[in-house]
Amino acid sequence: MAQVTLSEITKVYPNGFTAVHPASFDIPDGEFVVLVGPSGCGKSTMLRMIAGLEDISQGDLNIGTRQVNNVDPADRDIAMVFQNYALYPHMSVRKNIGYGLKNRKIDKDEIDRKVREASTMLNLDDYLDRKPSQLSGGQRQRVAMGRAIVRDPALFLFDEPLSNLDAKLRTQMRIEIKALQRRLGVTAVYVTHDQVEAMTMADRIIVMNEGRIEQIGTPVDVYNTPETTFVASFMGAPPMNLMAGNIAGGKLRVGEEPIAYDNLPHSGDVTIGIRPEDIVPDERGDITIDVTLVEELGAHRLLHGTIAGQDISIHVDKDNMINTGALRVSLKPNAVSLFDAITGKRLT
């Protein structure tokens, strides 16, 4: 259990490619942090640098009070869960879980006791003598978890641990992992490309893109007030509507269509972001949308259409039987996010 501090951590590969631009953040003791971003954004590299599997090109990494830049992975007091579990195929579950302890010259009885403890916690008691090939995907995942928790590390690292599971199991394991981390109170860094996983599991989310940190914040912060257009479009399904707009005389317009949003300090071209669920069908609304397609999602319906020639989606209840055609809508208060049209950075 420890606080983790990264300052100006950078990864430059020998061929000159910068995988992670200088990144700094703190993870307080016991926090569950999720690194999220599209593939190739540097999130895995970041995790592997924390684990010590990848050299840190520049910057300082502290786990607890110790600077661990050049400490061997085995001595960083971390445990890692891999995407394909990386269980040792020739060892039984018991040996898989206990292997790290055995290498640390811990007494046999002690290992046995700890393995039991972990297996009980993960409902693996009946499988201790099986080989990984005789287990289902979910059970293998649990063994990988067992291998991590049995060591009682200061820091858990998860590298997309759920992406090999089917959708239903994923939802279940998501909750289990989160609950386990809560119970043990161990600091955790979790890498995923799945924004739903990020939203549901994280105490804080770090959104990355092209080797840079786009935003750090709680799931609510990141969802409601995205700092950049990238975050706005990456987080949330369907993503935030992003439209080219213009501010003149304090009035915001999309094309010729005015958006009720007054007293703006900015002027000129902007990118307007509105979450699909913040748009409400309203007969007295001032905005007209031309709905061209309706997507039935069961619990709700998604209306796709255009406003002044630009694509927009609206999220409505399943009972709201709106069809294609012109639709008058209004916006919920504080629905609009404004971004710089060129840099994509948030304006307000």
Partner: peptide, 23 residues
């Protein structure tokens, strides 16, 4: 043999000799 297996062994504290013999 998958890279992750080696990395898992490294984190589990298996040095080059142990990795060779044990895995």
């Amino acid at each position: 043999i998958p890279e992750e297996l080696i990395e898992a062994a490294r984190i589990d504290g298996a040095g080059p000799f142990k990795f060779f013999v044990d895995i």
